[in-house]
Amino acid sequence: MNLTLNIWRQDGPNAQGRMVTYQLADVSEHMSFLEMLDVLNEQLVEKGEEPIAFDSDCREGICGMCGLMINGKAHGPEVTTTCQLHMRSFHDGDTITVEPWRATAFPVLRDLVVDRSAFDRIIQSGGFISVNTGAAPEAHSVPVPKPKADRAFESAKCIGCGACVAACPNASAMLFMGAKVTHLGELPQGQPERWARVVKMVSQHDHEGFGGCTNTGACADVCPKEIPLDVINQLNKDLRGSMSKRA
């Protein structure tokens, strides 16, 4: 198939960016979206131009590195990661607009690459449990009810890609945070730090410049790991709980 691509180009963090249009011929429908960009980059390099910078690592939908705004939808038209999106989701003659995630807390470093270390700092502020390493306890000594284990697992699937922030009209990271708060809050090991965790994480989130949540569900609609909206409910509930339960 033949495609017209509008791609955001920006030379550096402080540079003025712009949309640049490229024509790409003979794209196979079996290519992934990133392979399509690889082909375009090879052509750019042959012509002596700078290739388009974009993030990726595993290319199998598990690391969370990739993430592009494709025709106004985070990760494109399918509910999956950008690396798992295939060109069969597009048609010959399509015009595809590719932009980086847009959020104050995710500044553009170059072209389509954004800095998502704000997520790391949110995790660093409270998204962990404190345990002594070395002597692993016998797993069966801490029973976990099956529904709680299931919900914790479902929430733990978040890969930190940032699509929720990119899609949110307020550039809020509540789904990402809610996933971690729910994951750890459902498990016995997460209890000692539960009430402090939620306050620290939300405070760091606000400090990073993410917006507040308006419960629209735009985040859950694009999440490649299908994290459900109710993790935000859990986050709200835990924050409310923290006001009476925290010492």
Partner: peptide, 13 residues
């Protein structure tokens, strides 16, 4: 974004 987000989220907000 250059492509306006058609998702229900923006409209609701």
């Amino acid at each position: 974004y250059a492509v306006k987000n058609a998702a229900k989220g923006a409209a609701r907000t």
